[in-house]
Design a binder for these strands. Structure first.
Lengths: 266, 266
DNA sequence: GAACAATGTTCCATTAAGTGGAACAACTGC
DNA sequence: GCAGTTGTTCCACTTAATGGAACATTGTTC
């Protein structure tokens, strides 16, 4: 059972990161031998890697002295991903404003062909959309994802998503590429994207991108409401509302003249 | 310049983690050679470690193809620290409720002789307390920290904080241990802790611990308001309010009979 | 309460894998 | 155009990581 390190990489570090990945996805803490078993590594090796990770605070003992879980240092370091205070401080007030209007607001970025959630501000009421920070969802089924896709050219979208079939999340999910591209064309005209129960039954959401001083897309913002009793004009109203919030956040970040929606080449 | 690995640890992993630590604390992305210089390591070594970290998503190129910053995978993994959905889903509604009453709410845990912030819900108004998740503050100057200390015995507090002098944060900070212990005794009777501009000029905050089903302390909750125009009875009112919020969250986590404040031996 | 089967941890010979100096290439700005 | 960066690759050396085995602990079962 040889497992040579990838070219130009470091085997020990790769293994240590796989331990972090494993524990991050595990709902409960795991012991040394259990981890070793799942990763196909000798316990003595895992033991040493864990000791290093623990001493640095990236792991910690869950209970008295048994199994291990992700440590506080990983949390601190990970939150540095959000980076410069500017993005969050520009967007969070907008999310709170949305919540005041009974719209649950989300902030996310595109990574790894997915949307990664950075923050959520729940609206009052029975709306229980609980996407923890770090949660990953599909690009093609969410308002956030589709707002990001609408920024790209059709060719870029195809080369990004064309390799695998689009998974169906709900009955309304766009699983055909042409259908999705048609949506994107509409969003470019509208100035916002939306997802009508395409990712979660019973919820309508709209999305719009946030730009920084260079004019590049730095994040995407969305707002969600229950889909029941929602007239067609209400959808447009929410779309405009989210669009405005994203515009305001972008302006706060020093984005240049609020240009037309769509990719630069358009 | 020899730098042998600590006993029973892994040198490569320790170095990789030091890269993460460095980039997490750096306000801007850093290049390979810059990192190598700051850590006292050869660039070729750093290069390989970075490649491994990048391929796993723990680092990513900031701009076109220049310097490196913390990656999205670190964010995702780090957020697993918050762990079981139960804690957050039990506490967040309480924080939102506080915000409705113009109290900015915080959630934190004790780690490494400090309070680590997990979440914040800002109240409306001009209150701009912006403690990003992962932020670390002192135990002795914050309401959250003092609520945690009040759970320990005086001896435990002394052995925890007695080694170093307590740093002065504001003019009101308790920098004398006996003074701090007197505070803690008061909090045990009150059922909540408070910090009267001891950590931040102009802000009063109160704190109370959250317990899980085993009765152990799993987190601490606090609420902050501007200190101006705050009558003495208002302080008590906010303290009780925060105490109630913590109680409710604890009950939601299945905590046993709301027992008296104070450490078990008391 | 003894026998069992897990567990976490340490030890140590083997050698594979990490190390770091040097060389190369690409870029920047004087 | 030159000088000082930078990121990246190469490769001989040997350090430092590896993994099997032995040991120590726990908790479970009969």
């Amino acid at each position: 059972m040889s497992n040579p390190p990838a070219s130009g990489e470091n085997q020990s570090v790769a293994r240590a990161l796989s331990i972090l990945d494993l524990l991050a996805d595990s709902p409960e803490p795991l012991g040394v031998r259990e981890i070793a078993r799942r990763l196909g590594l000798p316990p003595s090796n895992v033991q040493r890697l864990i000791k290093t990770l623990t001493r640095a605070g990236y792991l910690e003992q869950a209970d008295a002295t048994l199994r291990y879980a992700i440590g506080y240092r990983a949390f601190q370091v990970g939150n540095a991903f959000v980076g410069q205070t500017s993005l969050v401080s520009a967007v969070m007030p907008e999310l709170y404003a949305l919540a005041d209007e009974h719209i649950t607001g989300f902030l996310g970025v595109m990574r790894d062909r997915s949307v990664v959630y950075l923050a959520t501000v729940q609206s009052e009421g029975p709306v229980a959309i609980n996407h923890r920070p770090g949660h990953q969802t599909h690009l093609h089924s969410t308002a956030m994802g589709k707002a990001l896709l609408a920024e790209m050219s059709d060719e870029a979208v195809i080369s990004l998503l064309g390799s695998d079939p689009l998974p169906r999340i709900t009955q309304s999910t766009r699983i055909e590429l042409p259908q999705l591209l048609a949506d994107l064309a509409e969003y470019r005209k509208l100035g916002y994207s939306y997802s009508d129960e395409e990712n979660r039954q019973g919820f309508f959401s709209a999305g719009a991108v946030v730009r920084d001083a260079t004019g590049g897309v730095v994040a995407v913002l969305s707002g969600a409401v229950p889909a029941v009793d929602l007239a067609a004009d209400a959808r447009a109203r929410i779309g405009m509302r989210v669009h405005d919030a994203a515009q305001r956040a972008s302006r706060k970040l020093g984005a240049p003249t609020p240009r037309a929606f769509g990719h630069p080449a358009g």
